[in-house]
Design a protein around this nucleic acid. Structure first.
Length: 665
RNA sequence: GCGCCCGUAGCUCAGCUGGAUAGAGCGCUUGCCUCCGGAGCAAGAGGCCGCAGGUUCGAAUCCUGCCGGGCGUACCA
């Protein structure tokens, strides 16, 4: 409803100002911090003042007097130095939000979101959780706005990281395919944890520059890329098993995928060769015949360096200064193999449906049950697989350290003449999750001099330095479980556990969303395990309180369903004269507006923040007002409608964040 | 060197396309259960918004320059 009124006001102002003053201006509308400033306000007169050479306050007064009536707006007033404050028709606004009708957008264009993308060679850690939570929340935000979304989780099952663990199994442990398979099946072993340690172990060999290790890596990598031989088979076993672990971990926090495109299929189906021909024929890359990159196909730096100050202050921005070649990005190595960026360019082209003649085949991962994703395959495939790829907009959820490579990918599309697709290639970046010094101390991690001086320490899979996702979740569940048990002595264990799990997921997902994307999270157990203050459980608790009131009220009524009806507009008009009740209606009806704004600005943290604020407003109301003891039936009916509204609004935001809405806690 | 990001309360962070008196949480101090469950509510203390200029009616927000920190800048991914 707020979005509707915002739109109406914007259009009304815009039309009137164009008509009356012949000026076209952007109408900025804001939610005033103070209730006395009305329900929506605009500082538009300050801008007009300049054009019209008149005092803003005078224009504001004139605007208020002359603007034709706007449906749903009760009054306009000039305030402050020249603000125009609008007040809503309270009864009609409340009636609309109570009945929950809101036009849904119908957009048939498909957005593709790629997230998670964990190398399938070790257990997922907290950094991966941030990626998945951010990506999944973006998915939920777009879906909430009516967009069609396809979720892809790219599996690099033939890369160096997998190769290293495979080499470790084969050459460090002397294990073959069958032995590793047995290990995967062994219920006493957590395969992803086992690989975590193994990966750290072999990485030490590389750090020590062990020539044997480098030979193992080269041999394994070659085998993985060709897809043939024992090492390749071992690689498939390892990668598939780890992918299953990752999917299970993510499922615990409510993250699902539509399709898993794998690098092995990109190789087998030769996506790259098509992309390569395209890049060559359109002059996007060139063959180096001299210099340090001799024998390579490279993309010249001027194609992707974003800095280009577009002839700022007329300085010769062209040649010379570039000093020569030092920025060129190698796409094809001198030995003829393609780099990761090259494969990523091919993948990005496929996502937009631009790789003519190249298409994956898919099989469903049935063993994972309901909600299981499809995975790519080179041959065969299911006839009823959906039509994946071919999106009109692509979000790549990858941390900010990959900005450079993402820029190369985007530039490649541009160089190929796919201007529109380049513009719609969105690097949904975020800062890393690091470990706070206290966290390191708690984990028993020894830091060197240099690391100790820093505010945080980077997570490192190679060093085995980090907090595993499942460990954190388990710890959260244990902590919550203790609390739940102490509150509900009567509940049985499985019920307590189910509640504890919901709280743990809520706490975790909220924690990952609280921070804006470009804030480095210095991970700290104490903060992550908090259930009080600005946390997921705080928001969940507000929702639980709301449902408790409604349940008790219904019980007191003997199950009367009449209570769910929206109060009459006369009742609303009377009761909402009460400023406190009206402010609540307003505060409890911001979810759609919030999601729209958060999506527009690409900042999921806004949803978290607003959900917390809504929960705060509700908790305050809860304490001040004893709804079930209210004597005036009309007043109580309105209060109950507000409680229902609060539950709905909170639930909507929680759902977008993937924070469970518990029935009790 | 070059590019991107950050510097706001003791700590961790918000601050939406410049707008009305800079806000939360934690921690600290102090109140609040004859209650719809206190994972809560209320109040208090705590700010040259890194520094210096500039643009503007108006700057935490935009521009320039410094200072401090992070990340990137591979024939790794």
């Amino acid at each position: 409803m707020l979005l509707t009124l915002e739109k109406r006001l914007r259009e009304a102002f815009s039309a009137h100002i164009a008509d009356r003053y012949g000026a076209t201006v952007d109408i900025v509308l804001e939610l005033p911090r103070q209730p006395s400033h009305g329900d929506l306000a605009t500082p538009v007169c300050f801008g007009l003042a300049k054009v019209l050479r008149r005092a803003p306050r005078q224009i504001a007064a004139e605007l208020c007097a002359e603007l034709p009536p706007v449906k749903g707006i009760r009054s306009l007033e000039a305030a402050g130095a020249g603000y125009v404050n609008a007040r809503f028709d309270r009864a009609s606004y409340a009636a609309a939000v109570f009945s929950g009708i809101e036009p849904g957008k119908d957009d048939s264009s498909k957005a593709i979101i790629e997230h998670t993308n964990i190398n399938p060679n070790k257990a997922a850690h907290i950094g991966h959780l941030r990626n998945a939570v951010l990506g999944d929340t973006l998915v939920r935000m777009l879906r909430a706005l009516g967009r069609r979304v396809e979720v892809q989780n790219y599996i690099d099952n033939t890369g160096v990281q997998v190769a290293d663990v495979v080499a470790a199994f084969r050459f460090l442990r002397g294990m073959g395919v069958e032995e590793v398979r047995a290990l995967v099946r062994d219920p006493a072993v957590r395969f992803d944890y086992c690989c975590w340690d193994l990966y750290a172990e072999i990485s030490r060999r590389f750090a020590d520059k062990d020539p044997k290790a480098f030979a193992w890596r080269a041999a394994t990598l070659k085998a993985l890329e060709s897809g043939e031989g024992d090492l390749a088979a071992l690689g498939a076993v390892v990668a598939d098993a780890i992918v299953a672990c990752h999917l299970a971990t993510m499922r615990r926090i409510g993250v699902l995928y539509d399709v898993l495109p794998r690098e092995s299929e990109i190789l087998k189906l030769r996506f790259w060769s098509t992309a390569f021909e395209l890049l060559k024929s359109r002059g996007a890359i060139r063959f180096e015949t001299s210099g340090k990159n001799i024998g390579c196909w490279v993309m010249p730096s001027k194609m992707f360096r974003t800095s280009a100050p577009k002839g700022a202050r007329g300085v010769a921005e062209s040649d010379e200064s570039a000093g020569e070649a030092d920025g060129a990005k190698v796409i094809v190595r001198s030995n003829g193999t393609v780099t990761y960026v090259g494969k990523d360019i091919a993948y990005q082209l496929w996502k937009f449906g631009l790789l003519e003649g190249k298409e994956f085949r898919y099989v469903p991962m049935r063993e994972l049950g309901a909600g299981a994703p499809w995975v790519t395959t080179a041959e065969g495939g299911s006839a009823d697989a959906p039509d994946f790829g071919g999106g009109s907009e692509v979000y790549n959820v990858i941390d900010v350290r990959q900005s450079y490579l993402q820029d190369v990918v985007r530039a490649a599309l541009e160089a190929l003449g796919f201007q529109r697709q380049a513009e719609r290639s969105i690097h949904f970046s975020y800062e890393m999750v690091a470990l706070s010094p206290r966290c390191c101390a708690g984990l028993g991690i020894e830091l060197n001099e240099k690391e100790r001086a820093k505010a945080y320490v980077e997570v490192s899979g190679r060093k085995g330095l980090g907090v595993k996702a499942d460990d954190l979740l388990d710890l959260l569940i244990d902590t919550a479980l203790e609390e739940v048990r102490s509150r509900h002595a009567a509940l049985d264990e499985s019920e307590c556990r189910s509640i504890a799990e919901q709280i743990a997921v809520g706490a975790l997902r909220y924690f990952m969303l609280r921070f804006t994307r470009n804030t480095v999270i210095a991970f700290d157990f104490q903060e992550a395990l908090a259930f009080e203050g600005e946390t997921g459980p705080y928001v969940q608790y507000a929702a639980v309180r709301a449902s408790n009131i409604l349940r008790k009220h219904e019980a007191g009524q003997g199950g009367g369903q009449a209570s769910a009806e929206v109060p009459s507009s006369r009742a609303l008009a009377r009761q909402l004269e009460d400023e406190q009740l009206w402010q609540l209606v307003r505060a409890m009806s911001l979810s759609r507006w919030t999601v729209a704004r958060a999506t527009e600005s690409g900042e999921p943290a806004q949803v978290a923040r607003n959900a917390f604020q809504a929960a705060q407003a509700f908790n305050n109301f809860y304490h001040q007002t004893h709804i079930l003891k209210e004597k005036d039936p009309e007043r109580q009916a309105v209060q109950l409608a507000i409680v229902r509204l609060a539950l709905e609004d909170l639930s909507r935001m929680m759902h977008v964040m993937g924070v469970p809405v518990p029935v009790r806690m």
